[in-house]
Design a protein around this nucleic acid. Sequence first.
RNA 1: GGGGCGUUAGCUCAGUUGGGAGAGCGGCUGCUUUGCAAGCAGCAGGUCACCGGUUCGAGACCGGUACGCUCCA
Length: 938
Amino acid sequence: MTTPTAPEIRQQFLDFFATRAGHEVVPSSPAVPHEDPTLLFTNAGMNQFKDVFLGQGARPYIRAVDTQKCIRAGGKHNDLEDVGHDTYHHTFFEMLGNWSFGDYFKSEAIDWAWTLLTEVFEIDPTRLYATWFEGDQAQGLEPDHEARDLWLKYLPADHVIPGNAKDNFWEMGETGPCGPCSEIHVDRIGGRNAAARVNQDDPDVLEVWNLVFIQFNRESETVLNPLPARHVDTGMGFERLVSVLQNRRSNYDTDLFAGIFDRITDVSGARPYRGHLEDPIDIAYRIIADHARCLVAAISDGATPGADGRGYVLRRILRRAVRHGRQTLGMERPFLAAIVPAVVEILGDSFPEMREKMPRVQEIIGQEEEMFRRTLDRGLQLFAEAAERSSDGQISSIDAFKLHDTYGFPIDLTQVMAEERDMSVDAEGYEILMDEARSRSRGGGDVHDPVLTIPPDVLGKLDFLKVKPTDDHAKDLGTPTTGLIKAIWDGRHLCDRSQHGQRVAVILDRTCFYAEQGGQVGDVGEIHVARGSSAGHDHVGILEIEDTRRVGDYVLHIGHVSHGAVATGDECEVAIDAHRRAAIRAHHTTTHLLNLALRAVAGPESDQRGSSVDADRLRFDYAASGPLDPFALEEIESRVNAAIAEGLDVHVAEAPLDLAQKVNTVRAVFGERYPDPVRMVAVGPTVLNLLEGPDDPRWLERSVEFCGGTHLKNTAEAEDFVVLSEQGLAAGIRRVTALAGAPARAARLETAELEKRLAAMESGSSTEPIDAMIRDFEAATISVVDRHTLGARIETLRATAKTARKAAAAENRGAVVDAAREIADSTEGDAIVARIDGADKDALLSAMDTIRAARPDAAVLLLSADAQEGKVVIVAKVPKSLIAEGLKAGDWVKAAAQACGGGGGGRPDSAQAGGKDPARVEDAAEAARAHATASRVS
RNA sequence: GGGGCGUUAGCUCAGUUGGGAGAGCGGCUGCUUUGCAAGCAGCAGGUCACCGGUUCGAGACCGGUACGCUCCA
């Protein structure tokens, strides 16, 4: 028998379920889940079907088979530190899976798994073991005898093993769908009974496949409810399967990794990979190969290394790979980008996006590696300082921790470097500090608002109660409508009624509210119950709606009862805040125009990466390698305004997805899944025009997007468009913030106001201080284009004002120094007290220098009254000889300052003070003279 | 999401208990020279990120904002 290759094995799996059992072959969802912010990375095959299990979504098929890109490197499943040290941990792996959505269950799933493993893959049946759930009394869970009995059809009793809740009861999270599971394990050795080694982390007896039977929803730690529909979710680790079928003892000894190892050998010049577990060089090989696969998968799906969230996880992975490459394989220069093609060579056929995005992936990895090099350089310097400080040959725990926590210098590197200097590191103290930091940063876990969503079993109940999906066709018009209250959800229960002050989510039979979706915020507004309920009660209630969300096909109106009470069955009048909606519509339509303008100005690579459409502004995030210059921003602003001036009609219609995607100008959002039929929003041409001639080059100048949002009827209604700012969000992602409609008009007014003031200053007809102008200018909400032009003019003014100020100060200082000379010449005694009005602190100190140059042995106290500013400045210096006689500068100025409503202090030889009452400056001078005399008498 | 650190001249960074904003490199000028980062002297260059507070007085202390780095989840 010839050894099958990895691609062959993958294909056999997909074919088996597709041809024998009618499964739909579904592509992997992205390894970076754009739609689910609660999840750092796709970490299991079920992620892309989560909405189905939650009862919030459906698919056109009830059986599916796929291979899913998975990353486990952050959050709950974190295998990062294990990778490299054993034969089977990965940060990136493929999960093969077959799925039943309310269709087949345990018996079919187990039969097919057995057939595939023993007949198609020809695994020796005596090497297979199966586990089943033994039940858990504490949680009130029954044993899964059904699964046990199904396995006993194929396996002898000593190969069918019971397992506890930890191993054999699968849960999606603390709450949510769950159920018993059954694992299949393979003994690589054979010819023995390995039952005792199952689930013992024995590298030769490993779990290959987990069959999960989802039949409950967990509401809380103690409450489990049966699900309306039961599902099957299976997951088989592809790399493990390949190692078994290729008869290798390590996942890393398969053709999934060989090509990557060869490439690392070429790039590093190190000796080839030998596959030893303890060998540092082989460990480095495994780490680099695994991490390279992970980085390629994540970055080609749109993630970028960064400072938080998934970006931070990627940064750590990259740094770990780079460190092992440098420390162990001796690669001084950036190398990781050069490994990428080897990864793409192996995985690119299964995941075409890797091939497509390869140049960009290499660019991002190259930049990040360069950045890490700078961090290391800085760390080296700080390490040297820390080593210098150490007196006992040990780097202190505080230094080690600070190097790590504040400067990102990894602890193991600190240890290596310490050893090179025959020093050690206080690792225990470091761990204590690290634990403290960890518990500090835990703390505030976000409290999610239970009213905002509805768990699957309650959704099932709604279905049972025949609450139909909300008809929200009226949302596009947004005009007031009437409806019936079908359900009230208080975050825990469905209620019949809700009273004044309560916060609830209300489901109506129909609504004109728009639920948050596609970046557009949900509507706010009011729901009035004006008449009695069907039961004839005579009551009135008002709901203030603060937010609108969608759960499955229901629209949730979230708010509190501000007056009276409301009950299910009530008829109500439904009205959104129409002014707010108008601003939102203007922002949404101009967001589309902005997207188009960006493509024209910044190039076709500037894909949308996020969007927020609110009443007071819009934000648009896009992929970009660098910032937009002022001319590009001006071009974008004027392109959008040109489309507004044209008065183009906005057409909205649904179209079959396959036809819609053929339209040449459509720009789909990366990683987004679109429904079929899809809703098209076209600015200019009608949807019919587009579908009839999808290749018409004229469309390329028009905006056409797949979008569920609410839009203007005609671009002219937007009136104006203003780009507020353009800034970097993360490496490779930039954000444009902009305004349209009324907020844009306000911005233009503000610009006009500033321009008027500026012009007055330029012509000399205004004496307004430039500093006030600059403050207002910086705080202003105005177009970035206007900011640029006004900014240049302000800069000119500022430079002029600065020169003038300096000249005035120099002149003043000249006059002050002249006065000082006179004082030096005309004053008797060795304690000089004199006034030089109109001098600021610096000028007064210059005067001081002048006098002391002429009279080195004299103590000098100078006062300056500034009637305009309303204050008095006092400085004093006393030579050593007079300090000895009891005259201290600090006391001296204090005595003077107190006489004119102030205070002050300083050293005995030099002090400064201030007073608040210029009218009493002569009193202050008198007090100073008195103090000088009195202090020296005593 | 929660911490830590940073932001001072064109660049790299000092700045002690709050009391006159500094160094090195770079720039300009002059001199001396002209073999490897030349030497000497002089000069210019700063809303100490921004806003508010405490104070007679803030680069420094307190609060907030922005940006950057970094750690943890």
